[in-house]
């Protein structure tokens, strides 16, 4: 086996682009979503934009600061620039949030498993999308495609999103557009200011108000891990197959290629096997085990 491996290496064709080398992109759009969340639109200086699937992520380089894993928040229905919605939680994300039009940002990717939108298991049937906070970002492209499924065979799309307070809600225009396109959209906040007449409560409390068909439902969840855990449990209680509940998991990521070892969650390298994983199987257990 060893000899075969070595032989295989020798027989390899010339190497392609350096996988750890970012491709310079120009910032062609900056939109402040909340006080600490910014959406960057990026265009490759070389013109070529790699294809991606919603749920995948890129490694973004703020030159001179470092690199961080950021989900793609574009829809494949949108032409042009690649969008990433970044929350300022550390040095790299802070630098990305500070980027201005014309700045150059490095992009490597896309990496990881997507939500599977466009694939057979999401072509029909009800889809319940549950997002917490910035968790709506990696779901944006998926929802946009789902509400425009060409032949959904009566399957509906429910978009439930929660935020700390109304000022932290992102993609308000999109939520409205998805509602107009036929999705059931519900928003809740943990803390309501005066004058707020919307829902107040945990995002799971929105599940009571929807009438999805558990037999056909696929759920896509992204948010803080505890929120995803409790949402998934509530969906299982509703009779939804745990294998049809998909979560976007997060761990430290430094390469996106399965080489750096930081993003392990038990048997998974999340950059390679995730970030989207089914709740059913061993993820439900892994999420309850301490310090995995």
């Amino acid at each position: 086996m060893l000899a075969e491996t070595a032989a295989a290496v020798r027989g390899r064709p010339p190497l392609g682009p350096e996988p750890l080398e970012p491709v310079p992109h120009r910032v062609v759009g900056c939109r402040k979503e909340t006080d600490d969340v910014t959406t960057l639109s990026l265009e490759s200086l070389s013109g070529a934009t790699p294809t991606f699937a919603p749920g995948q992520f890129n490694m973004l380089t703020a030159y001179g600061v470092g690199e961080a894993a950021i989900s793609v928040s574009s829809s494949r229905r949108e032409a042009g620039a690649l969008r990433h919605t970044v929350r300022d939680v550390g040095p790299v994300s802070a630098a990305l949030c500070r980027a201005r039009l014309g700045d150059v940002v490095g992009v490597r990717g896309p990496f990881g498993k997507s939500w599977g939108v466009g694939e057979a298991d999401l072509a029909t049937g009800d889809v319940v999308v549950v997002a917490g906070g910035i968790g709506l970002a990696p779901l944006r492209g998926a929802i946009d495609e789902l509400v425009h499924r060409p032949d959904a065979d009566g399957g509906r799309v429910f978009v439930l999103t929660g935020a700390r307070d109304p000022s932290q809600l992102i993609f308000g225009d999109d939520l409205e557009a998805w509602g107009r396109a036929g999705a059931v959209v519900a928003v809740t906040v943990d803390t309501a200011p005066r004058g707020w007449t919307g829902h107040v409560g945990l995002v799971t409390s929105l599940l009571g108000g929807i009438d999805c068909d558990p037999g056909t439902t696929t759920a896509l969840i992204c948010g803080p891990e505890i929120m995803m855990r409790f949402t998934a449990k509530a969906l299982v209680d509703r009779g939804i197959d745990p294998r049809r509940i998909k979560l976007s998991m997060e761990r430290n990521m430094q390469c996106g290629l399965g080489w750096c070892g930081h993003c392990q969650l038990g048997p998974y390298l999340l950059c390679r096997d995730g970030p989207v994983l089914p709740y059913g199987g061993d993820v439900a257990r892994l999420m309850t085990e301490r310090e995995r």
Partner: peptide
Amino acid sequence: LQATRLRLLDLYGADRAG
């Protein structure tokens, strides 16, 4: 009670910046 406990955690809170 469970929902209230989770909201107490301020899951989306901005105090986790590192």
